[in-house]
Simulated scan of single mutants.
Amino acid sequence: MTATVGRSRTTSSRRWATAPAPSFAHLARLSDDTGLFEHARHAIVRREHGYCTDDVARGLVVLCREPEPTAELLRLAERYLAFLTHAQDAAGAFHNRLGHDRRWTDEPGLGDWWGRALWGLGTAVARSPAAWVREEGLVAFSRGATRRSPAPHAMAFAGLGAAEVLRRHPGHVAAAALLADAASAVGAPDTDARWPWPQQRLTYANAALAEVVIVASQLRHGGPPLDEGLRMLAWLRDVQLRDGRLSVVPAAGWRRGAVRFHHDQQPIEVAALADACATAATVSGDPAWDDGVRQAIGWFLGDNDLGTPMWDPGTGGGYDGLTAHGPNLNQGAESTLALIATLQHARRWS
């Protein structure tokens, strides 16, 4: 049986119709000739916090998703790619944190940043219009794809990059193996319909775990059943709806059986859900999944628990979180990239 999504429509599922085109103005403001700064106070860059591979990789994903990038965006993608290749060591691991003094402050590792780096590289391989970017991305991806992380989230991000590589290179053995291992790392859904999630706690970027199971179902050999990923995602989406609008799991997470709080919602949760629902619609052929994308867009435009926009039209930046008292008005890289990634999905109906 294939999981399906409810088709009820509310204001929160209609605001997408007025969604603006994604703006890269604030992303450019946060970037310099080295990479992408992590933090901002309101819209002003906080250089003292430096750069991180996590955000640069997410930046490469959204830039390479643009169907007709401008020359400025191509140059920005080149800069982010150069950052990632500089962050990678000979064994395929990645540094994550670079100070403003251009010195790494950590050792190469296989945390979330490794997975996101492979996601960014894989997206460049699949979608960049520049041949040399695709080629260099493939070299770096192939080196990193030989490694495995013990963390399910890191594996999920890496698996999404592997799925991108397989779009352009369906015979890429290392990518296929990584995608299969990523789905295995996430695990199969629980049989309890009240909590079918493979883990006992929802944390961050939760929908990415369901998404990698969905895309892994398309592997020729060793992929999980499609229904497993769809069941996970259907439950996750439904449990994050409140009075018909999106109300995502907050930064503190939510453990099975515990009280769930609704403050400190993070844009990364919304973007992950938009990505996963768009993937589910494409893979399953069921347009009902598009409702999840619309609700994610609506969350940024004001269809959330406080009825407030979660972005600044003047700067193009995304706000860092939805607190109990309103938006956190800082416009850091993660939240801005989540905004861009979500608004990119509005093109599905243009």
Rank of each mutant, 00 (worst) to 15 (best):
L84D: 05
T85F: 05
Q88I: 03
D89K: 01
D89I: 00
A90H: 12
A91G: 09
F94R: 01
F94S: 09
F94T: 01
F94L: 08
H95S: 02
H95A: 00
N96M: 06
L98A: 08
L98K: 10
L98R: 10
L98D: 12
G99A: 15
G99T: 14
D101H: 13
D101A: 05
R103V: 15
T105Q: 15
D106P: 07
E107C: 02
G109V: 07
G111E: 11
D112K: 12
W113T: 00
W113G: 00
W114F: 05
W114G: 01
W114P: 03
G115V: 11
G115T: 11
A117P: 03
L118P: 11
W119A: 00
W119C: 00
G120S: 10
L121H: 06
G122V: 09
T123R: 10
T123D: 08
A126Y: 06
A126I: 09
A126W: 05
R127S: 10
S128H: 10
S128M: 02
P129R: 03
P129K: 06
P129Q: 08
A131K: 14
W132K: 08
W132H: 13
V133L: 14
V133K: 08
V133R: 11
E135I: 07
E135G: 13
E135S: 13
G137F: 05
V139D: 05
V139S: 07
V139A: 06
F141R: 06
R143F: 01
G144M: 09
G144E: 07
A145N: 02
A145C: 01
T146L: 15
R147S: 03
S149K: 07
H153W: 14
A154G: 03
A154R: 02
A156I: 10
A156D: 06
A156P: 07
A156F: 11
F157A: 11
F157I: 00
A158H: 00
G159I: 02
G159A: 04
L160Y: 10
L160S: 13
L160H: 12
A163W: 10
A163T: 04
A163K: 04
A163H: 09
E164M: 11
V165Y: 08
V165L: 02
V165I: 02
L166T: 04
R168V: 05
R168Y: 02
H169I: 12
G171K: 07
G171C: 11
V173C: 09
A174E: 10
A175V: 04
A175L: 03
A175D: 01
A176Q: 11
A176C: 06
A177Y: 13
A177I: 11
A177M: 14
L178W: 00
L179P: 01
L179Q: 00
A183K: 08
A185G: 04
V186C: 05
V186W: 09
A188T: 13
D190P: 12
A193T: 15
R194A: 15
W195K: 01
W197H: 07
P198L: 04
P198F: 01
Q200I: 04
Q200M: 12
R201Y: 12
L202P: 00
T203W: 12
T203Q: 13
A205Q: 15
N206I: 11
N206S: 10
A207Q: 04
A207F: 03
A208D: 12
A208H: 14
A208S: 15
L209M: 14
L209Y: 06
A210N: 08
V212F: 01
V212I: 03
V213G: 02
V213Q: 07
